[in-house]
Simulated assay, not measured.
Amino acid sequence: MKIDFTGKLVLVTGSTSGIGFAAASGFLSAGANVVINGRSAASVEDALARLRQRNAGVPSANVQGFVGDLGKPDACDRLIAQHPAFDVVVNNIGVYGPQDFFDIPDDEWERFFQTNVMSGVRVARAYARAMAEKGWGRIVFVSSESALNIPADMIHYGFTKTAQLAISRGLAKRLAGTGVTVNAVLPGPTLSEGVAAMLQSGDVHPGSSVEKLAVDFIAENRPTSIIQRASTVEEVANMIVYVSSEQASATMGAALRVDGGVVDTIA
């Protein structure tokens, strides 16, 4: 199977590092034109340079950057004005972090909701209609296994990831028969830069490798993991790229787990 995005324009939100960066790189290597997104000009420029270097051997690949916090409506408006159409939209932007339920103020719930949920709502609402009129398009929400296994120390995060599943499934039904697919990808513990930093900040045995810290974290906090390690960002990106491809045309309204078997169900 050869996945080819030549001539397709792809948006990956929250893509200056982690899963988003790996997905952008995967799309570029398959010939797509990609728009990446980050909150600061410095992070976007750095990511652009790394992507161009990594994909220098792909002559048809082209990557641009958009600077803006898509958790805020005005940034979404600027994005839509600069880029009126996309063939593929990957709603990856998100915030996370452990915090006890009794210590989470209203404004933090609102920040998580606006960033993790409403950013994807606004972007999908802006681009899905034109995709449907053209008869082809892909919308992907990057959710989490935490949508199903709500973490006790990140209830506000789990809530937003469950909301993404509801939106993804409902929008898939709304776009039935149009040639536009809508799906969610659910990573499990993934060794992104942000997760690595979080693990290292809590390391009680300085000098441990980040991989060892991840294995210990999973053993303690995600004991149902079957692979018993963290996924790589590339492993998650592979699913995002596949479900966005022509080959995935019969995959619709799905919640696709890349969780290493953490969710203990066969369904």
Rank of each mutant, 00 (worst) to 15 (best):
R222C: 03
F27V: 06
S244L: 06
G31E: 04
F159P: 01
V180M: 07
F21P: 00
A267V: 13
L148G: 04
S144E: 02
F102H: 13
T181N: 10
V241I: 10
A42P: 03
D106K: 14
R229L: 08
N149A: 08
K212T: 14
R169L: 12
Q82M: 14
V233S: 00
V34H: 02
G135N: 08
P73W: 10
R50M: 11
N55M: 07
E235A: 07
G20W: 03
V34A: 08
S144A: 06
G207E: 11
D107E: 15
R129F: 13
T6D: 10
L9P: 04
K173S: 15
R129K: 14
V88G: 03
D107H: 15
L28Y: 05
G18D: 01
E133P: 12
A254K: 07
R78F: 07
L171Y: 03
S60R: 09
L9K: 12
N149V: 09
H205L: 15
D216A: 15
V88H: 04
G253H: 08
E108N: 07
V182T: 05
N238P: 01
A237G: 08
N33S: 15
S119V: 12
A197I: 02
N116E: 04
L165N: 04
G26K: 05
R257V: 05
D46H: 13
G261K: 04
S17M: 09
S144G: 09
L9N: 12
L213T: 03
Q82N: 14
F217L: 09
M131C: 08
A219E: 11
A22P: 01
